[in-house]
């Protein structure tokens, strides 16, 4: 199991379209992905779960990956957070 704290940098936060980008990525991962915001823990492969985190810009989210490709998965997720879920590219 690996864990990393990531910051939501994009303006709109983890809104539905961002959540959609995240789920698109986690769907390709073999490992289990969970997101935790200090209050609730949600399934990182469920778009409605991710959206229900209500993570706004500037908030911190703990990502936990557990399984075969956990390291690679975590790197990709961190990259996606860093890019702001392509929000500016849209």
């Amino acid at each position: 199991m690996q864990e990393r704290d990531l910051k939501v940098v994009n303006i709109k936060g983890l809104h539905l379209r961002a959540a959609s980008e995240l789920v698109k990525l986690t769907a390709t991962c073999i490992c289990k992905v969970t997101l935790y915001n200090g209050v609730i823990e949600v399934d990182g492969k469920s778009i409605l779960g991710v959206a229900a985190l209500g993570a706004a810009q500037g908030s911190m989210v703990t990502i936990r990956t557990d399984g075969e490709d956990e390291g690679e998965a975590l790197d990709k997720i961190a990259d996606l957070f860093g890019r702001g879920f392509y929000e500016n590219e849209i």
Binding site: L16, R17, A19, S20, D43, I47
Partner: peptide
Amino acid sequence: IFDAHRFILNDQT
């Protein structure tokens, strides 16, 4: 946005 809709539709929760 329709990609998001498909994820919602297929959301396991």
